[in-house]
Design a protein around this nucleic acid. Structure first.
Lengths: 360, 360
DNA sequence: GCAAAGAATGAAAACGTTTACATAAGTTGG
DNA sequence: CCAACTTATGTAAACGTTTTCATTCTTTGC
């Protein structure tokens, strides 16, 4: 006759309801308070007890419930980032480093993509803080009035990136987009160019585009150059760049220098020029913006403006983190962008002919 | 004489401790349960009460504390994604769509980047679930034995992407990397190529690279072609592609067709070939893998394998979400990849000369 | 040698929700 | 008209931690 030991099943590895502090406490022969302390304030618990607690915790596969932890301690260890898209390398790179830096402090990053619609960002930001984000990374100027007034009351640490905006309502860590474009223009003007055109993204909802466009217009205007109005607005794809350069060649054939507000666009402009039999830089000079990975590998290598994407992400994370731990508020920091001279720009053809003539 | 109304400050917009259910309940003249229901089970509460509750909530700026909500309801509304890096467009694009799809169901995505070290991923995965992730997206085969055994016990819904692996321990949604490379090889062989080389990423910890390398070796071997061992291992940057093609030209000068396991590498190979005066495809044929945005814009336009990055992200999100809501487990789904024929490959020079001779 | 201070721990309250259970009112069917 | 449902709401327990406060035991200073 078989006895089935009805009263007690030896072990029950199945239904174990996920060990909690209480289980660990019982098993280790201490109180729940001590368990909690062993994890969170290890210094104030005696060495042997701490070891015992940690060991039994390990043994039981204990992992603190993050919700309970967050509820009681009022710390979610979550930070949020609201960016236009991850599908654009320059944002992905920034977020990559932001996320990575914060992870080293035990924080997780949740990212919300807003598209390029400004209407979305307030909503996404609210979602982010409603979800428990303790700090926020934004990109660009805060435009939505609703968001402005939302951020005016002090909630949580916020920084905005990509633009240096000393008057912004939250600290920013970025570079001077106006000056960046200006430096490119200066370079081209010094080369002898007088007829300009620009390939830009939509200024709507992007202070960066607006700043670059303004720098372009101001520069062309103040130096009595040509083409202040020759601005083609397109989206941020290579194909848009190809269309834009066609438009320029078609509508403003006198153009000798085109400044692109994005390397993606410059890429399109470059490859389409080649297809059309226009030589760069001999026939037309092109400069980009971003210094994407491929910029140096294009034909010709692209003269462009290097942007501190990694640094923005990392610095934003560091600043927000110290704000979270020390209470030290984020600062306004102005990073450098600088023109990287490669081969896609040279003196305009007319000038070269002049020089040649002079040499004879 | 001025009266200061000492007893009562008219309003106190400062110290309001962030309204909770209780405040809303009191203000709306209902119980906390009703408030909760008005938000979460709107159908079972009478219309007028619901409206009143929602209105006062809005009024008080009430937003449910996510931690408390998660603690009691056991739903964090957070999902996790562990990927090598965001700095690589193909992953960023997938995550972008994953995140976006899940956001439409009210879920936030937290992403953890593992680098290309396999040791990290188990740790990151644990962090993710410890942080409350209700579902998980992974990429590639699960290699770490610790992670394998961790995932063997049913925890939470998990899918892995990028590879179709019918025998994987968790459902996967990806394409057949072996077949993809095979199709490219077939195409090249049909063009008449007999001398091959491959530019690959490290097979270590990447089943995708291993599958593509295996396909290459098998194909070359089974058809008695040359170059089964001519595989250059590099990282995933353009510069690595440039170095790799130099190595191939140097060590295996007889090569007429090189298959790159990444468009980034192919980009490098293409541009370096041009710099070296090697014509593509006349002197050497090159095919890529990914169909990156720029593939069609290279010179020559790159023949490459299109990969369903967006679809993987979106589908993974949809499947995990229905798993979360219906309990319906994720399926194994095999997506298509296909060769996109452009201009970077043609019959090898020798063959063309032969044809020419025959024509005479 | 004793008061005061410090160190290590425990008991129980608190965090802000959701939800199981209870209750009251309204509806139906015979 | 009453039993049996249904519908709308309220009461209080529960979720799993951290933290306050109290307690005990050990040091320290004079």
């Amino acid at each position: 006759m078989v006895r089935l030991m009805p009263g007690k099943r030896a072990k029950q590895p199945k239904l174990k309801k996920k060990a909690g502090v209480f289980d660990v406490a019982r098993e280790a022969g201490v109180s729940v308070a001590t368990v909690s302390r062993a994890f969170n304030l290890p210094d104030i618990v005696s060495e042997d007890v701490r070891r015992r607690v940690l060991a039994t915790a390990q043994n039981l596969g204990y992992a603190a419930n993050p919700a309970a932890k967050a509820l009681r301690s009022r710390k979610t260890h979550i930070v949020g980032a609201a960016i236009p898209t991850l599908d654009y390398a320059i944002f992905a790179k920034m977020i990559n480093h932001f996320q990575d830096s914060f992870a080293q402090h035990g924080y997780m990053t949740i990212v919300a993509t807003t598209g390029f619609e400004h209407a979305n960002v307030f909503e996404k930001v609210k979602t982010l803080v409603d979800r428990g984000a303790e700090a926020l990374l934004l990109v660009g100027a805060i435009e939505d009035p609703a968001l402005v007034s939302y951020l005016k009351r002090p909630h949580i640490p916020v920084v905005t990136t990509y633009s240096y905006l000393p008057d912004e309502i939250v600290p920013c860590i970025g570079f001077d987009n106006y000056a960046a474009t200006e430096s490119a223009m200066e370079y081209l003007a010094d080369l002898g160019h007088r007829n300009f055109a620009m390939i830009a993204g939509s200024p709507k909802g992007s202070d960066r585009q607006r700043a670059r466009i303004a720098a372009y217009k101001d520069f062309v205007g103040s130096r009595n150059l040509h083409g202040a109005a020759n601005i083609i607005i397109r989206n941020f794809t290579i194909r848009d760049g190809t269309e834009a350069i066609r438009a320029i060649l078609d509508k403003y054939p006198e153009t000798t220098a085109v400044v692109c507000n994005t390397d993606v666009m410059a890429f399109g402009a470059l490859s389409e020029s080649r297809r059309l039999g226009i030589r760069v830089p001999q026939d037309i000079s092109i400069v980009g913006f971003d210094d994407a990975e491929y910029a140096a590998q294009l034909e010709p290598p692209l003269t462009t403006i290097a942007v501190p994407a990694e640094e923005m992400g990392r610095l934003a994370a560091e600043m927000l983190h110290s704000s979270l731990s020390n209470g030290e508020p984020p600062r306004f920091v102005r990073l450098d962008s600088h023109l990287i001279v490669r081969k896609s720009a040279c003196p305009p053809r007319a000038l070269k002919q002049l020089r040649l003539a002079a040499a004879v």
